[in-house]
């Protein structure tokens, strides 16, 4: 248990670091972005909203940096991420609340499937070293070097268009109202298929490569030779001895690489105009919507940390050496 507690402490530290980065970065922006926004909104802002923006941007000249920092933390604790410029007067929290489920659904599911598929394939390719399976390596190397979003562009160009099964954009058919009926769910799945496949193809190849290398490394460990000497069936040696051990570094790799992967997958949303956090990030960059940018950064960081925690639990379950009795 002490292992998990230590990890939890570390995640809290990371959240604090992310929040602090969020606090200081806007203070580098020259000029008065709030004034610019007020002008843009032609005075439709409540004085409350204006004040919260000043706190967010650290332009509250009457306060010291320390008290600014604490009022910023207070705002965050209340779930107040400020007002979005682009979706004014929606609070950032609401805007992100709209986008998050789509991202979790698309990016979350495909990343996990990609990890499992790639790990399984990598285990097989690594085990069958010296056969035709080796010829997959150059292909996967090439695919894993392609940016996710470009693969999405190619997929759209090749597979969508008039009469195609795959829609080129959106998360569901225009005109449908989101609810839990079959028509809507069907439409969602249909729209999610192509962006999902794009993420899958790009992410799978990375896992294939890393798992293959781990398999090759583990295969020459003594206990694998012992398993062969025991005359166990090949499948058993491969799965329970080699792959089971090669999986461990791949799981911790999964946790560490998540921050990198999520960045890439968010871009796929932009290409497919998929209404998740990635598309919102794109819109926020275009409109210089700082509160939304920061909110998205914070939420993505929190999600990645949560996924990391889950990976830690999985690792704990997989490796008896990290478990301590009592």
């Amino acid at each position: 248990m002490s292992y998990l507690l230590k990890r939890l402490g570390f995640y809290l530290l990371t959240v604090w670091a992310a929040v602090t980065i969020n606090f200081f970065v806007p203070r580098m922006i020259p000029g008065d972005p709030v004034q610019a926004l007020i002008t843009k909104q032609r005075g439709q802002m409540t004085s409350e909203a204006v004040r919260s923006l000043y706190v967010l941007f650290g332009l509250d000249k009457d306060e010291s940096l320390a008290s600014q920092y604490f009022s910023y933390l207070g705002q965050l604790l209340r779930g107040d991420l400020g007002m979005s410029f682009t979706f004014f007067p929606s609070p950032v929290a609401d805007v992100i609340g709209d986008g998050l489920p789509w991202t979790v659904g698309l990016v979350g599911i495909t990343t996990v499937i990609g990890f499992f598929l790639g790990t399984a394939a990598g285990a097989l390719v690594g085990w069958r070293r010296g056969t035709w399976a080796d010829s997959l390596i150059p292909v996967t190397t090439f695919v894993s070097s392609i940016p996710y979003f470009w693969l999405g562009l190619v997929a759209i160009a090749l597979l969508t268009g008039p009469g195609s099964f795959f829609p080129a954009s959106g998360a569901y058919e225009i005109g449908l109202v989101p609810n839990w009926d079959w028509q809507f769910i069907g439409s969602t799945v249909q729209h999610g298929l192509l962006p999902g496949l794009t993420i899958l193809v790009s992410s799978v190849s990375g896992w294939i490569l890393s798992m293959r290398n781990m398999m090759v490394t583990v295969s020459s460990d003594d206990y694998v030779t012992v398993a062969h000497a025991k005359g166990l069936p090949e499948r058993r040696v491969m799965l329970a001895y080699a792959a089971r051990n090669a999986l461990l570094p791949n799981v911790s790799g999964f946790a560490l690489a998540l921050g990198f992967i999520v960045g890439g997958t968010l871009l796929v949303e932009i290409v497919f105009s998929y209404p998740g956090l990635g598309l919102q990030l794109f819109q926020a960059v275009g409109a210089k919507d700082y509160p939304l940018l920061q909110g998205i950064f914070l939420i993505i960081t929190l999600s990645v940390l949560l996924a990391n925690l889950l990976a830690d639990v999985a690792y704990l379950a997989l490796d008896p050496r990290t478990r301590r009795e009592g």
């Binding site: 969020n22 946790a255 560490l256 921050g259 990198f260 999520v262 960045g263 990030l281 990645v304 940390l305």
Partner: peptide
């Protein structure tokens, strides 16, 4: 390492 790199670079 765990802070998502791309969003950080973007902000």
């Amino acid at each position: 390492l765990v802070i998502p790199a791309l969003p950080l670079i973007v902000i």
